[in-house]
Simulated assay, not measured.
Amino acid sequence: MSFEILVPSLPESVSDATLVAWHKQAGEWVNEGDNLADLETDKVILEVPAPKSGTLVELVVQDGETVVGGQLLAKLDAQQAKPAPANEKAEEAILSPSVRKLVAEKDLDPQAIAGSGKHGRILKSDVLGFLNEQQQDAPPAPAPAAETHSPLSATAIASLRPEQRVPMTRLRAKVAERLLQAQQNAAMLTTFNEVNLKAVIDLRNQYKDRFETKHNIKLGFMSFFVKASIEALKRFPAINASIDGSDIIYHGYYDIGIAVTTPRGLIVPILRDADQLDFAGIEKGIHDFGNKARNGSISVEDLSGGTFTITNGGIFGSMLSTPILNPPQCAILGMHAIKDRPVVENGEIVIRPIMYLALSYDHRLVDGKEAVQFLGIIKECLEAPAHLLLNI
């Protein structure tokens, strides 16, 4: 029975997709549910599962082509059972173990050797005789030519400096488009501050084992920054807002985007209603997003929306940066590497774990005073985590 394999329904706001690669080829057997191909959209990778078990008869669309929902991708001949493979053991039985080893060592085709044994069985003497005939028929090796050194041609010189032109992936092209949009359409400005993370590190070290035992998830730093950001957003609602034309939209909820780097590029999954999550809920949400990003199962819904974004360049060793807005959001918080630095406390120089923070914001909506005070609130919450735990 023949089946047509179609492009699955694409998510809302996605008009087309690119066929990245076929995982099965025409003539191959596939089992029901096997991933036949990957389709790349602007945001996610979609899998094309086999509707039935059978033989893939024809690939209608090739790698790199653009497809739309419902388009024919391939044809499948559905069968109840996989055809039995040809029995190769019967052919191998003609050869004794020693003959089989000799044939393999000399890379010979047994079909080309005439067997003199019973029922045409190939003997070791047959193989040796075949090799002697090949050596006698082979033309004498030519005398080695005198070694010469000719100057390299322009083509040879160019080959020493290779270049490769490849098309952007859809995700990379979309990221480029949105970053350029942010630069062109927003009055973007960045303000900085530094935070002493000794209190957070001490608290984490004291309770991380008990936390992991109880919640089955590790206690990281990101949950502290999410909690501190929400506290600051509550005090400065303009930073949680967005601009739509000539209107300002104030969001009465806190959907926090967490920038995640994947082999395909940067994505920003959204923690919905993050203000209603405890530390364990935030850590579990971030962990789930990481798993989905690695195995390619993250959905468009996971990436849609968001009122504020946090990005952590510190995991790559970044000391300081100016993060770019994620439109239509009007602010993004940049975390950086934690480094031991000398600071003055109570008139004395001490060493403390310091992180530089960067807040990029749309100056059309957020004033400099608000941005500076916003970072001040985050600094205050992180340097005295009791603010987050006691809600004061």
Rank of each mutant, 00 (worst) to 15 (best):
M1D: 06
F3D: 11
E4A: 14
I5C: 04
E12F: 09
E12D: 15
S13A: 15
S15Y: 10
D16H: 10
L19S: 07
V20W: 03
V20R: 09
A21M: 07
E28R: 09
N31K: 13
D34M: 03
A37K: 04
T41V: 06
I45M: 15
L46S: 08
K52Q: 15
S53K: 06
V57M: 12
L59V: 07
V60C: 07
D63Q: 10
G64Y: 07
G64S: 13
G64T: 14
E65L: 09
V67H: 11
V68R: 15
G69I: 08
L72A: 13
L72K: 14
K75T: 15
K75A: 13
Q79C: 00
E88D: 12
K89I: 11
E92Q: 14
I94W: 05
L95Q: 12
P97M: 08
P97R: 08
A104Y: 00
I113W: 06
G115I: 05
G120V: 14
G120M: 13
I122R: 11
D126M: 12
G129Y: 05
E133W: 00
Q134T: 04
Q135M: 08
A138M: 11
A143F: 01
P144G: 02
A145Q: 14
E147S: 12
E147T: 13
H149M: 04
S150V: 11
S150E: 12
P151F: 03
P151R: 06
L152W: 06
A158N: 09
L160E: 07
L160M: 14
P167E: 04
L171K: 08
A173P: 08
K174F: 07
K174H: 12
V175N: 10
V175G: 05
A176N: 12
E177T: 11
L180C: 02
L180K: 07
Q181T: 07
A182C: 02
Q184L: 15
M188K: 02
F192D: 06
L197I: 04
L197F: 01
L203H: 06
R204M: 05
Y207P: 00
D209N: 03
R210W: 03
R210I: 08
N216S: 12
L219R: 00
L219E: 01
F224R: 02
F224Y: 05
V226F: 08
K227R: 13
K227H: 12
E231M: 13
R235L: 14
F236E: 07
P237C: 11
A241N: 11
D247P: 02
H251F: 12
G252Q: 15
Y254N: 12
D255T: 10
G257A: 11
V260D: 07
T262L: 04
G265Q: 04
G265D: 03
V268C: 02
I270F: 02
R272T: 07
L277D: 12
L277P: 03
D278E: 08
I282L: 12
G285W: 11
G290P: 04
G290L: 03
G296P: 00
G296E: 04
S297L: 09
I298Q: 13
D302E: 10
F308Q: 14
F308M: 14
T311M: 05
N312V: 14
G314K: 04
P328Y: 05
A331W: 00
M335A: 13
H336I: 03
A337M: 09
A337Q: 06
P342E: 02
Y356A: 03
H363K: 00
V366P: 07
G368D: 01
A371W: 00
Q373D: 04
I377A: 03
E380L: 01
P385W: 01
L388Q: 09
